[in-house]
Design a binder for these strands. Structure first.
Lengths: 194, 194
DNA sequence: GGGTATGCCTATACTCATTAGGCAATTACC
DNA sequence: GGTAATTGCCTAATGAGTATAGGCATACCC
């Protein structure tokens, strides 16, 4: 019997594909083993088990999406950068739902610090650099932007916008417009809107 | 041996508490059986099994939170109602993380229609009635509000705002201010912000 | 071509999910 | 209050997943 050629990378790749196809919950040592037509125990020679597999999918997704984000944001600023950021996350979620879900996997502090997570944060802040925000407003803005993007994408992915008109993309544009407007006028109105 | 006095309601209650304490993933037929010091098989006389248990926790959480929302919104409008809506979801998530997570459980159409889900939607729309939104803007606003609230709460719950100042509550207030401002000026600026 | 490292296997021991069927505690009825 | 019917929780049994230990053979290196 020829060898299957398992490696951690190939296993994680397969796990990520499985997550996209069947959900993150379907990522198990047993399921990945089946994909390679191999006994479950064999998987344990290369990765630590089911939780480790999911953790690795999360790290892969963080890297992949940070790369996409970096490309998308290169040379853009303002409303343009905002749209690129949002669309990148949204498109990633729609084409890779399992990977996107994996982005919310809790990681221990050292792993998180060594991951592409900080790159996401930095890119988010870079988009906001195009707006003139001072002090705490910058943090509020990061959190607003993160909330809107993650909230919309995750509700859309969960089917929350099905069965209602108009097309979610229309709302998406309108919402990004609104966020852009907020970011533009935030400093001037100084947080206290009448 | 005296009987344990299992009922679907008591099982679901225990499952919900377990979800809050250990996460939705810890809700299993076996774990709930342990809570009542009963064999796993006994649980199956009252509920359908693990997926059914989680589905029921979702329905319980929808009812509970819709009740809280209804109470909180009674007699309020505008910025005030907005704050009440957001705080109710946020407080519910923080005091009942497992139940909050269960809110995102996918339900089949009939179950969803018979659940308190539509009540949530109606209450959201009621809050927006205080703002003067026309046509599609109303739907965009529902989606914006849902995205911001769910996004913020879920990022905060996932620890996304740990290890960074200032206090999330400050950002929360600033964000609700921003949303209020957006909703107030949306119709007048008609979606096309310069 | 022989020696060695290592890859995937079998074997084993858990836990959980789920169904079938049995005994006993409760309830209902007379 | 005694008996019958019900229903609640049990034991038993099967199958899947997780995980570890140790064995045999394949692939690689000289």
């Amino acid at each position: 019997m020829p060898r299957a050629g398992l490696t951690p990378d190939r296993l994680v790749q397969a796990a990520a594909d499985l997550a996209d196809a069947q959900g993150l919950g379907a990522v198990t040592a047993a399921a990945v083993a089946r994909r390679f037509d191999v006994r479950t125990a064999s998987v344990y020679s290369h990765v630590g088990g089911t939780p480790d597999l999911r953790r690795r999918v999360a790290l892969l997704a963080l890297e992949e999406s940070a790369d996409l984000l970096g490309d998308a944001l290169a040379g853009r600023s303002g409303r343009d950068a905002l749209q690129a950021l949002g669309d990148t996350y949204r498109d990633y979620a729609r084409s890779h739902p399992g990977r996107y879900a994996a982005l919310r996997t809790p990681l221990d502090p050292e792993t998180a610090a060594a991951s592409a997570g900080p790159r996401h944060a930095a890119l988010l802040r870079a988009v906001l650099r195009g707006y003139d925000l001072e002090g705490d407003h910058q943090t509020h803005a990061v959190r607003l932007l993160g909330s809107v993007v993650h909230g919309f994408v995750s509700l859309e992915l969960g089917g929350g916008f099905d069965h209602s008109a108009p097309d979610p993309t229309e709302s998406w544009t309108a919402i990004l417009d609104a966020v852009h407007h907020t970011l533009t006028s935030w400093t001037t109105t100084d947080g206290a809107h009448p």
